[in-house]
Design a binder for these strands. Sequence first.
RNA 1: GCCGGUGUAGCUCAGUGGUUAGAGCGACGGUCUCAUAAUCCGUAGGUCGUAGGUUCAAAUCCUACCGCCGGCACCA
Length: 565
Amino acid sequence: MSEKFYLTTPIYYVNSAPHLGTTYCTLAADTIRRYQAMLGKETLLVTGSDEHSQNVERAARKKGQSPYDFSTELSNEFKREWDLFEIPYRFIRTSDPRHHATVQWLFERCRANGYITAGTYTGQYCVNCELYVNDAEAGDPCPDCGRATETVTEENYFFKLSAFEDRLLKLYEEQPEFVTPDYRRNEIVSFVKGGLRDLSITRSNLQWGIPVPVAGHHVFYVWFDALISYLTAVRDEHYWPADVHLIGKDILRFHAIYWPAFLMAADLPLPGKIVAHGWILKDQVKMSKSRGNVVRPEPLRQVIGADPVRYFLLRDIPFGQDGNFSYDSLITRINADLANGIGNLASRTLTMIRQYRGGNIPASQGAAEISAAATDAVAAYRVSFEKYEFNRALESLWTLIGAVDKAIVAYQPWTLAKKDHPEPQAKLDEILYSAAEVIRLATALLHPVMPDATAKIWAQLGMTTPIAETRIDQLAWGQLPAGQAIGEIAPVFPRLEAAKVIDRIQEIDDMEVDRINVLLGKTEAPAEEVKQPWAPPPGVAPLAPEITIDDFVKVDLRVAKVLTA
RNA sequence: GCCGGUGUAGCUCAGUGGUUAGAGCGACGGUCUCAUAAUCCGUAGGUCGUAGGUUCAAAUCCUACCGCCGGCACCA
């Protein structure tokens, strides 16, 4: 009976289509899941869609659809994207009757244990937008429409979050990795130490939601709905509790505080850890619909391919921190590490094996320095990977790849091949075997990150066992069988030409935007204004015509501080 | 405002008291030829945010200031 490993992404809100942020999280989750599978575990990745909200209801109505039909189309959009990225998942919708039943069941359990109370909720509400505005004072403007909000008071049900302060602090202390990375844990600890207030978990004037099993009309509000989907997805299965909830830093508090408290209140086992990642910035600024700088995954996948995109995101961004996305860094990274790095190493090694050894892996122990470096790299990779430090894991592997490239130049196999004596021939076997064996080890370790490309290299090496069934905890130097016939050689990571690639991405992105706008019921294309050249605001003199560089060097620019005026 | 973090080469970062401060990428020059105009070698580039202090010795510890980032209750 193998160990199970259950992890989740957030269930994504159906107010928009997948973007690079949701894709990042899902790709990372897929990578973690594949890694755990290669440790021999029975794995499950759950993702899904969060559908109940006033906003969704309004968007659907505007488009002339029921909230359910609207949500169905959008959740299909997420499924479609993960399918295209070839990510295996189990999908849960909050509109699913099974989920309704689970939420109600959990509510009853919490209530039976005395953690649900009836109370009065008072807050600010925008009648126009039908929106609860949370940290607003009486009369504050609505963030959406700017009209004054009204103070509303209604009878609600509350969750006694305040009863869990001590137990939560004990959890964070006894299980320090419950919240990862550690700086996020510190934030959570200090927040809880500051005292917890009870949580209003129902609303009486919303329609599109899960009915609360009490007299009168109430539906569950936000978190006592969304979080519970993780449980719904595996209800009555051996997968619970989740080993990892992978989330963005913006929803950490709900996962690290509310969620364990709900589960404690219901006497259910707690998840293993909450892992929070950062945001992806586009050219150093936060992506947002209003800025019109949202990066969509589909053009990247179509033009560059899923595997290089996955590699870039995990290699270039320290997991947990915010990271920057730019076409320039993407293309540079792919060319340097994939095309010139591992791709070229595989290519040159296999070609030499074909040319000098008739396409059969030579028999050799390999070079001592390389086998030692490889053993270290494998260990370092695993340590970093299991701490979710993907960038460091990958970096340690590329140090090894660099060492092999260096060794090839030092050995000069093309010179050795011309010498028909046992000694140089043995040296030739040694370097060729070493290089091929490093490729095998690196490819196996990289398989969770780049499932498709690594399978191709695996086949080129002549491996006959499925790469996904390789046990990465059993990798050791020297397992590449001597005499094995290599497969057909073909480049796996072609070099990218920046200008062409970017043009093609833009082209596809334009089509994507149109398609998504139809889906969301938006008629006019938004955010076009950001592409307009900058214009001076009223009262500011228009810009003078630009000058050439030749004129510019003639300009004498000086800075002065005005002391009196 | 309060709390926490951070500021090191053009870019991304490593380096928590001890030799002339490092890596990758990018730039430039050279080289091999097995390879995807790849590899490899070399060069350029840093008053380690600023000002003090502790110490025989500080990027590394302390203080102040400046900049940036995060958290400070319901942001899916």
